[in-house]
Design a protein around this nucleic acid. Sequence first.
DNA 1: CTTTGATACGTAATCGTTTACGTATCTGCA
DNA 2: TGCAGATACGTAAACGATTACGTATCAAAG
Lengths: 339, 339
Amino acid sequence: MSQPKQSPSIKEIAAIAGVSTATVSRVLNDKGGYGEETRRRVMAVLQSNGYIGNMAAKALRESRTRTVGLILPSIDNPFFSSLAYHLEERLDREGHSLLICNSLGDAEREQNHYRSLLAKQVDGILMISDLSALAGRLPLDRVPLVVLDRRPDPALAVPYVVNDDRAAGKAATEHLLARGCRHLMFLAFPQAADNGASSLRELGYLDALKEAGIPVDQNYILRRPGLSPATEEAEALVGRFLDEGRFPLDGIVAVSEKTAVGALFALRKRGVSVPGEVRLLGFDNTILSEVTHPGLSSVDRCPEAMADTAVRLLLERPEKGGPLLHEIPFRLAERESSR
Amino acid sequence: MSQPKQSPSIKEIAAIAGVSTATVSRVLNDKGGYGEETRRRVMAVLQSNGYIGNMAAKALRESRTRTVGLILPSIDNPFFSSLAYHLEERLDREGHSLLICNSLGDAEREQNHYRSLLAKQVDGILMISDLSALAGRLPLDRVPLVVLDRRPDPALAVPYVVNDDRAAGKAATEHLLARGCRHLMFLAFPQAADNGASSLRELGYLDALKEAGIPVDQNYILRRPGLSPATEEAEALVGRFLDEGRFPLDGIVAVSEKTAVGALFALRKRGVSVPGEVRLLGFDNTILSEVTHPGLSSVDRCPEAMADTAVRLLLERPEKGGPLLHEIPFRLAERESSR
DNA sequence: CTTTGATACGTAATCGTTTACGTATCTGCA
DNA sequence: TGCAGATACGTAAACGATTACGTATCAAAG
């Protein structure tokens, strides 16, 4: 009735079925080289003994685990968890599993996790990191490595998957310009923690202003110090800007969703209507953008497509020398905050 | 300069250092039984050759992987991803890694993932599932198993970690009663998809009404059909209730965060002020509750404590026969929606 | 000087697979 | 009949670690 506590090994199965381990293995892997009668008998024994293979042994023998690792700052972040969802989905379809490691952006944690993943013999590693913590200290070529949502130094020769952030910044800005905004704020990431995306989006913002013939005013470019949570800082920054009242304002491009929420809070507390007086637009388009009031217009960075490309790069290992940069299309999700 | 593509094996290290593999292994594991001079030499060779162990081999030999699996409906859910974050955090501190598997609540996926985790020789499995899909079809005792946020049949003898949902439902209701609400709606999960928590919270709601001497009216208990996304259905249900206008309403206890958001949308569209005319309270207290307007009062289910307990149960394997039910304290996070 | 015990190793088996290689049986054809 | 080639297996060697067991050396104790 009850199954044995431990799964039997291929050897025990072989003994019961009266064949060799080689034959059991062949049956298990559909390799052929056995008679139909034998196959049936082996299958029956496997079934009735609740055989479940030992992937550790298989991995040792084949030196592949069908497991890949994902190192990210924190799975507890709506955009990353959406990305992780799609990565797992895609990997699962290819018969691979996903190991998740939170780094909190900490260099030491990244290194430890990376080493540990290599030791675990993963078939590949996905990272949301600029790799500056790893470069030179750990081998980057023992196993396929793909970076997501960050732009590592091209000298490291690691492929990376990002959006065309400059174009996205430009599109976001143009969206607000098209709705009549003329005094546009750009709410940026801290310079230090700049993951490359923020300054590119800023360039896009500048591109759009230039094309529209609107002079750039540095007072409209607000940069978070980066010491406290994004939402709080953004709220404080925008709040101060509004309180000083030195400059007119009718639109804000926020470099992330959380900063956009902060901006929204600041505006609401001061009774500034959105989108009536100020239009607002953020990035990431996670569930957060759906539940604020008004709903946040947001640049959808298409995490599903990012995941798709990253997994393809990781598993199909394109010939060396291919392009490192892989850009994923984005699209604007318009909601009330910019209408 | 550049390290070898493949990590050397213990055997190669041994050869270079002029010792046996046994000695290298002993040095690696601090087992003692070697001279100081030898230790230094072996260490140096390990270092300079970029040795990284092979956990597949180690797992095969020791039959433990220091890896545990987590099967959940979807990592792309704020409460679950918070739970996953804390699980990983806690496991990492114990030297374990976390494999993540999305089941979408689908029985077949759950089974496949479960089998695959067993094959991968994980040291334990965490599940957000009532196990009905597994019971009888797969061995539940090959490896320690702990259920989170669901109440599996006690006959399965699987420990599970949940909140005291009845108490939480009661506390939530009392919170609104204390603020003067007398016409309280309870917004429940669909009967089919009931994970046990919803009906317990409903009992708590009834407890609170009874204690307050308020007669129960079934018209105030709304149940989602469970066919569409929670937020939409909740919005539709509450909307219809309001539009019919047959019953007075001044408070809503929503069984989850997403249903609370749906309720909030319905109220807002009809110009019902929250908390002025209707006070609202939900569950889960994820980041969603922070960004709605007004901010959602929410029962914080303390995912960190849940993770802590679950990992402890999984790794410390308490003596058989201990209690299965493990209740985690909750606390009310009060925001504007109920003030 | 012998004995005892500790210390510092090495040898080889083992974990559960896969697979190269060998071999026996059978089928079909000249 | 004899032989080639296919088919259906079995044998045994890996994969990279751990570890029980054996052994040589040495110091201290008797």
